[in-house]
């Protein structure tokens, strides 16, 4: 699948933002005054920047509000609702922290759950797609959620918890790669089943349907980055998991900032791979994957 920058930025930034909002909402950290303004601002900023980025790849973004209408069937629509609901619900808690209003925090817990729910809906946009076997597995939402929690914990300055989550994320990433690599074969689709010509014999492309590129080839049959996949996996793993875990053993803000930058870079690399490595079954018609 084509790793569109808008979608990578959207899912990584908003995931991290909602992760931080979950920690702030649940009261794991309860900043006050301008510290609260900056901390909550960071959470809101990341979430909103991510959500705005997601509109950049739309063909007709001026109609984006219509995406709220189909929550009964569409995960993308549910995500729109969940994200807006989270941002609205947590606003009074953020305001209360900033201005020391002392409002009850109960609503913060609901907001925290909703924040993680938003990340879950994001992950389901991809997980639901049967035509992309690598994504169509429960490990996909698990990865999105643990990424969000890890990023959130780092930004919330939770040294020990964040380090533990980094280890958990490492385990999940290994599972993602191991399971993902076998998913296409497990889906059992071949050029033979795609064309139904396996009932006659061995199928091979004789001539392509068109001589130049098209939307399908550009969007669904992205092969450019896969040759460096193994290297990129190691880089993503080192930057998103190993380095932040080590940095978090240190004390003080600089360590947290470095851990956050490292984790964010690693998360972007991992998310790039999430798209670039995913193969759509339509590639079978072209003899490509």
């Amino acid at each position: 699948m084509h790793p569109a920058p808008s979608v990578i930025i959207f899912s990584v930034f908003s995931g991290m933002g909602f992760g931080l909002l979950a920690f702030l909402g649940a009261g794991v950290v309860t900043p006050s005054g301008w510290a609260a303004f900056l901390w909550w601002g960071l959470g809101y900023g990341l979430a909103v920047v991510g959500l705005l980025a997601s509109t950049f790849h739309l063909g007709n973004p001026q109609r984006a509000l219509l995406a709220f209408t189909q929550w009964r069937s569409s995960w993308l629509s549910r995500e729109a609702w969940a994200s807006v609901a989270t941002l609205l619900l947590l606003a009074p808690v953020a305001l209360s922290d900033w201005l020391a209003l002392g409002w009850p925090r109960g609503i913060g817990f609901i907001g925290a759950v909703l924040a993680l729910g938003t990340v879950f809906t994001t992950s389901m946009i991809y997980t639901q797609i049967k035509a992309v076997p690598r994504w169509h597995h429960p490990v996909t939402p698990l990865m999105f959620m643990v990424f969000s929690l890890t990023g959130g914990a780092i930004l919330a300055g939770q040294h020990l918890l964040a380090a533990v989550l980094c280890v958990a994320l490492g385990a999940v990433l290994l599972a993602v790669y191991r399971i993902g690599d076998g998913q296409f074969a497990r889906a059992g689709q071949t050029m033979g089943t795609a064309t139904g010509l396996d009932r006659i014999g061995e199928v091979a492309v004789f001539e392509q349907a068109h001589t130049a590129g098209n939307y399908l080839l550009r969007e669904m049959i992205y092969v450019v980055g896969r040759k460096h996949a193994t290297k990129l996996r190691r880089i993503a793993f080192a930057l998103a998991v190993v380095l932040p875990a080590l940095l978090l053993l240190g004390h003080g803000l600089p360590f947290v900032v470095l851990a956050a930058i490292s984790h964010l870079t690693g998360a972007l690399a991992a998310r790039w791979l999430f798209f670039a490595e995913a193969e759509h079954v339509v590639g079978l018609y072209y003899g490509k994957r």
């Binding site: 063909g59 795609a194 669904m220």
Partner: peptide
């Protein structure tokens, strides 16, 4: 009502949908 997000084209196993690059 189409915002041109392209998700339907991803969901189709058969490559039946193409996003028009001019109209979006």
């Amino acid at each position: 009502a189409c915002i041109g997000c392209g998700l339907c084209a991803w969901a189709c196993p058969y490559g039946a949908r193409e996003l028009d690059q001019a109209a979006g």
